[in-house]
Design a binder for these strands. Structure first.
Lengths: 157, 157
DNA sequence: TTATTGGTTCAGTATAAACTGAACCGGAAT
DNA sequence: ATTCCGGTTCAGTTTATACTGAACCAATAA
């Protein structure tokens, strides 16, 4: 693979990351910025470089960057004597992604629980189905903490 | 809580389910139909009852129902001598939800892997971060099957 | 003091997707 | 033969939201 090829593929991944973000209900531009900062070889981008590389308006960049900062996934450094901000990804706790899945399962279960509580007949087919789901999901949620500790201790050895 | 209150709350949950589906990138109406079929006490709804209860057009109902059938989450029964279809939720394998999470993690990791492979310097800060994430997620994915079997055997006893 | 840099803000546009509603369709009943 | 039932199809409307671009601003440089 030529150098050029490699960079072209990296840029394709950046675009793909935009689509992934879009599916999650976030702005594609935010995803593309995250892509830039994680996928390209360069690890620090200024505001202007982001605007230039992604061919987006300054307004969009400003807006998306603000959002990413709020979500706590990017940050920036400054260099003495310069006003520019050099953005880079935050090397968050590895488990954040896993925790998000856990959180989603928790919300699902709270919802199912509410539904179950509102059933007039707790032994109807659907009520039993709900119970079954809730029980199983609870089990999995409980496994998350266990897993984390297992993983951590496995790496420390 | 009065009977009326209970039903009102059930209907609110049905609406909430629509919003959940929307967040997942699916049609809110599909979610509301799923809500009807899982949350309300009635467990079988005809096409017309769905249209009536949710106050939606026949077109929307037809479209959303088709989609839910394709996703394999609802089905219908018929009664001899009637043309109506009585829709109800499919009591799918409990683990479908969990499997979806697993699948999502797999896709995430494939993506991260592609990004890592395209790095010119596999020891750069971001490359190492990617490796770290991939390793952890892989470990976690591997645990899913284990968890499932543990759960199953736990219930059988 | 004026110009430049490095942005932010916001009104307006473009686009996509959900949803409606009306026309239509096949099969059964009258 | 035509009316009703239980839908499907599809063109057009509505709505949401991402994005643009131009005006603006504060800090620094000339």
């Amino acid at each position: 693979m030529t150098e050029e090829d490699r960079v072209r593929k990296q840029k394709a991944l950046v675009e793909a990351m935009g689509r992934i973000y879009e599916k999650e209900g976030l702005q594609p531009i935010s995803g593309r910025i995250m892509g830039l900062l994680t996928i390209m070889d360069k690890e620090f981008f200024t505001f202007d470089e982001i605007v230039e590389e992604l061919q987006i308006s300054k307004g969009s960049a400003s807006n998306a960057i603000k959002m990413l900062e709020l979500r706590n996934v990017i940050e920036y450094i400054t260099v003495a004597g310069e006003r520019k901000r050099y953005f880079h990804i935050k090397k968050i706790d590895k488990f954040t992604l896993i925790d998000e899945h856990k959180q989603k399962l928790k919300l699902t279960n709270e919802f199912l629980q509410s539904a179950l509580e509102l059933k007039s007949d707790k032994n109807s087919g659907n009520a039993l189905f709900l119970k079954d789901m809730i029980d199983m999901i609870d089990f999995f949620i409980g496994k998350f903490q266990e897993f984390k500790e297992e993983y951590k201790s496995g790496r420390e050895e």
